[in-house]
Simulated scan of single mutants.
Amino acid sequence: MTSTLGKLQRVDPRSIWKHEAHDFTPWLVDNIDILGEALGMELEVVDREADVGDFSVDILARDLGRDRLVVIENQLEVTDHSHLGQLITYAAGLEASVVIWVSRDFREEHRQALDWLNRGDGVTTEYFGIVIELLQIDDSKPAVNFRLVASPNNWSRQSKRGPGIDEVSGKRSSYQEFFQSLIDELREKHRFTNAKAGQPQNWYSFSSGTRGFTYGMSFAQSGELRAEVYIDLGDRATNEHVFDKLESQKEALEKEFGEPLRWERLDTRRACRVACYTTGSIEDPAEMQEQHRKWAVERLLRFKKVFGPRLPELAKAVHPAS
């Protein structure tokens, strides 16, 4: 029987990506969801080669589920002191909450340095070390594997149970439990998200796969649940332009969606959104929370089915070179 098994082997990343900045970084920008899946985050690219004083960070992203800025630095060689210093400089200059160092191999002293940074008193920035591996079985195509080697002390527990679940009480705990159940179903049954950790907040955002558009679910202050497509491509005029193009298809979109939608330009804010609502509160009894979760899952899946195929063309029309 063993003769039918293939041989697993590692492939040199340089055989696929000859140049770190010109080859690997663009690939990671286009496949940021693979990195997000390895970390249990919903990552969306904000910028590439973003300026930090006289330097530039490889990738600037956002952790959508927590609305946190993420710095990503790549290295197709063994880790070195220079990149460690750059990471700390970028985190400070951009006030990033998450720092991800991707490398082909980590020196033990650099892994220990990330662990030390994560243990700092009053630390608010999370540091992750990720080894990128290319794995191949016999003559198959190489496959990417991101292997976590350094993370905040409680990250493994957070990814399974939700962050600080033992430390959160009252309404915030109820939000966390609700969203943990929601994202678990969306991830495990529908492959809708990479997220693993519910948060003690009244909202959660999910990647649409198209930069500038997110799907979201929240408990609104008006005693309603809201599911939405959120539009924020960087400036008010662009958002309104895209919103108007979508609204011009209102009749067809609502027919395909299966119910009326609210078209909200949000004139006092930069972003716009298209949403649907139902009555509900986090303080409703458990049996109603179950109905709230089912409602949210169904609407988010509908938004992805109906709006998802239209978003790339809208983004391309606004930013042809992106």
Rank of each mutant, 00 (worst) to 15 (best):
V242A: 13
I72S: 05
G122T: 06
L182W: 00
M288D: 08
L35A: 07
P312M: 11
L246C: 11
A227I: 06
P309Q: 11
V29F: 02
W263Y: 10
L233S: 00
S208Q: 03
Q249T: 02
Q86P: 06
F106H: 04
M217C: 15
V11E: 01
E108N: 05
L233C: 05
G122V: 07
E126L: 01
E283S: 12
N153P: 02
E290Q: 12
D54T: 12
L84W: 00
A220S: 14
R262N: 13
G6E: 12
L253Y: 03
G53E: 06
E264Q: 12
G6L: 05
T2K: 02
T193K: 02
R14A: 10
D138E: 09
G36H: 13
A21G: 06
T89V: 05
W263C: 14
V29W: 02
R310A: 15
K245A: 12
A195T: 04
S56Y: 09
S15V: 05
E108V: 12
G170W: 05
A237Q: 14
N239F: 07
E44A: 08
F192N: 15
D23P: 06
A195L: 14
A92F: 07
A220D: 15
E44T: 10
V57R: 00
L8T: 14
E256T: 03
E224K: 06
E20D: 05
A220H: 10
S169I: 13
P200H: 00
R68N: 15
F106R: 04
G129E: 04
I282S: 01
R111K: 07
R147A: 09
W155V: 04
G129Q: 05
G129H: 05
I34H: 01
A38D: 13
D232L: 07
D138L: 03
V229M: 12
S248A: 14
I32K: 08
V123E: 12
V274M: 06
L5H: 05
A195Y: 03
